[in-house]
Amino acid sequence: MVFEILSYGFMHRALISGIAIALMCSIVGLFLVLRRYSLFGDALAHAAFGGIAAGLFFGIYPIWVAFGVSVSSALGLTKIRQKFQISGDATVAILLSSGLAVGVVLISLSGGFTVDIFSFLFGSILLVSLENTILILGLAGSILIIILLLYRQLVYTTFNEEQAKVSGIPVEKLNYLLVTIAGITVVSSMQLVGILLISSLIVIPNVTAMLFSRGFKQTAILSMTFAVSSVVTGILASYTFNIAPGGMIVLISIVIFSVSLGIKSAGLIKNKTIIPSIKQV
């Protein structure tokens, strides 16, 4: 059965795109979660929805408009937070509702789109084209390389901005880079789980990994493992049982999280060191 599923071309594209998106979302998400930006991805996805609607309304390829809107919203939001000292959750709420409002207004002005807007809302990874697969692979590869090259600076800035600044790290530039990467990640991931479920891919694998791991690298590797497992199992299960892949992927990641919580609360695995401690001073 599994071998039969894996022989289809659309399944190859779905799995390759899905794995690339899972890797990208989990590593970018780790930085967002630790900066308390967990809902930032959700806000950018809703802004991208406005971009999708604008693209469809004006007859421009919607994904490109969504990229533009998502990245400019991410940069604008960061600038507003810095300049006007508005709290993070309030700016996220503003962006989230304005993106959705623009989308709803444009949809009603057009009298409804012929293109299935539900594919953007809930994802359609099994329908991903070869061109989009290549685009997703290119973006995911570039983002992973950037993160690897700037790994220490990004971790340090996430840990403590003030100390990173004193060490000569260009904190503000890195912050803008990270939100730009987040904007690109969100739009790339829309085809996998859809606008409404994106934040789950960014948040759940990381929170699950943090239950077990002690170090940053360990957390990143565990998070990527959980994300890839959820995506692969979700795609295969969704085809087998004829269920929407987006919802299936998120449900599987929630199952992994719940089982992890159970293991953790039962005390089967501890994330504390097993090295004998010296006298506590």
Binding site: L34, R36, V155, F159, N160, E162, Q163, G215, F216, K217
Partner: peptide, 23 residues
């Protein structure tokens, strides 16, 4: 530089070696 009380997320997943290595 050693600050007064460095502000960081209590559950931040970083080992002592990783924190020192940030410098």
């Amino acid at each position: 530089y050693v600050p007064q009380k460095p502000a960081f997320e209590k559950n931040f997943p970083a080992t002592i070696s990783e924190v020192v290595g940030m410098g």
